[in-house]
Design a protein around this nucleic acid. Structure first.
Lengths: 338, 338
DNA sequence: CTGAAAGCGCTTACAG
DNA sequence: CTGAAAGCGCTTACAG
């Protein structure tokens, strides 16, 4: 039941524990033959480094943190995180690094959690998601000099590395497609205004619509919930010059819109085209199935992990390429009524 | 930038580091006055125990593992895990224990992950979900003598503690309700046959239906996916003696059934009543909204954490009460056609 | 009630 | 290329 230690390997190999450590870590200082012998013994007795001992002497936790700051029930239907985590893990596993997950209510709790994790040296760095335009976590990370990767667009208010999505391109692709179908009144039901990418998307949307000479578009802010999505859709469909197409900033709201349209007797896609901002199984579960922007979230997670590990290891982060979305056309979009 | 250590506290307080350790851990061996003084200093300089040092000397990782064994894309729409994790964390945080999350493809990978975590002493125990009737992870946990909690019904093939759901009661409640509405042909679209609770539910369903004198019910196995749910529903609705009510083992398949019914011109709930096996936002996102069995998943998670920590600490697990479900009646159920 | 010391299992300069 | 030793920051018997 006693775990083997390097002392045992050293004894069996007849060398010092220092030599064993060097051999095991692939460092110079031992002859090729000794190294081979040591590795064989380690393998034979099933040795694994004690994680605590390595952390203590090596001053690396071999662990990164992810503090998700959202009310728990919002997380349910949200398919983003599980995919993102799977992507993170895939990359971390290869580097023998674990993921410490925290689910907290808000940014304040997230900050407390980060401070604690760092003070205890439980993690080597943090993955930070759901960034706000003005985000209280950033100054804290800077103050602590804690390695971190910001999952979101690059920002000018910090030197912290980020891994972004090309939000503008995605929004433009959706608008271009709708315009090509013949739509001229295109509205947008946007996400949480405090989020940085919400603002970027709104700006891109406005510019794209104007660029097509369609005048000032209707844009409604929401908090991403089904209720807000339904409310926004009702408001838009109640106007005299109601839109013939609406783009939504996530999938849940687009599904809500589908129900509102049905309730108001507006046919989809006959009288109203709908584009969801995220693609998920939800989009396929409803009828008509929703045209959506599909993001490769798993590789987004993998990429985030890579950048964070680069920062932790003191390397300059690998090229911060942006994750792009492609439009998956399904049954919720068509040409507008004539 | 240097973190304060107990050595620093000891120096400031003019005592030995041993005394500091005792004071900080609330153990006897220091006077009340000294203890107070030490605690004040620790607080003042913002001392936090080094997690690695505590683990190494105390032989406790202060961390538990959760290895989720499912393909990543299945996890997306599945609202269970995020809620469950939130529940786990709420309980763990109070005990200063972290959660190490692993997302793996299958049981084999989960076993490898568990062995590694244990060999490295990264965790003090595991939370084990998605148990199979015959589960390869159980003998491994026993072999390693690794503390664990099985999230699922108690089993006879192991001494490992479990935290269960009262699956039979939930199934019976749904059947009773449908029978009360007047249904006499009630079918069941069941989940993955390998899962233990699938079998328990099927048995309870069969017994409940027979108990009402309704003869042998139709039951179809699936893998929980939308596709399998749709297929099963199509098969059931194509029979001459097609059911007037179907209970599903999750929510995704119930939503699939809704679409199949629409596609086949069967009105819900007029000609077909549908009961979803899990309640989630999905059930409210569709029309008609789905009657569903609602489980308190967050407290299920909290309870699991409590039992695991009990086992780790060598206490006998707190009473293993079962999590129950209640039926949330919405628009997808009504009396059968006459 | 308190101090001095060994020990947890590694890593890493530092001599030979 | 190798060995002996200090050190990471705690915990915990063991003397006083």
């Amino acid at each position: 039941m006693k775990r083997p230690t390097i002392a045992e390997i050293a004894a069996r190999a007849g060398v010092s524990i220092g030599a064993v450590s060097y051999a095991l870590n692939g460092r110079p200082g031992v002859s090729a033959q000794t190294r081979k012998h040591i590795l064989e013994i380690a393998d034979k007795i099933g040795w694994r480094p004690s994680f605590a001992a390595r952390s203590l002497s090596g001053s690396r936790a071999h662990c990164v943190g992810l503090a998700i700051a959202r009310p728990a029930d919002t997380l349910g239907v949200e398919p983003f995180f599980m995919r993102f985590i799977a992507g993170l893990e895939g990359e971390l596993a290869g580097r023998r690094t674990a993921l410490l997950l925290q689910v907290v209510e808000d940014h304040k709790a997230a900050i407390d959690a980060m401070r604690l994790l760092w003070a205890e040296r439980r993690v080597d760095g943090m993955v930070v998601t759901d960034l706000w335009a003005d985000d209280a976590r950033i100054p804290v990370l800077e103050e602590l000099q804690m390695p971190a990767v910001l999952v979101g667009r690059p920002r000018i208010d910090t030197q912290l590395p980020s891994v972004g999505t090309d939000d503008a391109a995605a929004v433009v692709a959706a608008v271009d497609y709708l315009v090509a179908l013949g739509h001229r009144r295109i509205a947008r039901v946007a996400g949480l205004p405090a989020l940085h990418h919400t603002q970027v998307r709104i700006a891109a949307f406005r510019e794209a619509v104007r660029g097509h000479g369609l005048g000032e578009p209707q844009i409604i802010d929401t908090d991403y919930t089904w209720e807000d999505g339904a409310r926004a859709t009702r408001a838009l469909l109640s106007r005299r010059d109601r839109p013939t197409a609406i783009t939504f900033d996530n999938d849940v709201m687009a599904v809500a819109a589908l129900n509102v349209a049905q309730e108001m007797g507006v046919s989809v896609p006959g009288e109203l085209s709908i584009v969801a901002g995220d693609d998920s199984q939800l989009c396929v579960l409803v009828r008509p199935a929703l045209t959506a922007l599909a993001w490769d979230i798993q590789s987004y997670g993998a990429h985030s992990a890579r950048v964070l590990l680069d920062v932790i290891d003191g390397r300059s982060p690998s090229s911060s390429q942006e994750t792009v979305a492609h439009l998956v056309v399904r049954a919720s979009t068509s040409s507008p009524p004539v």
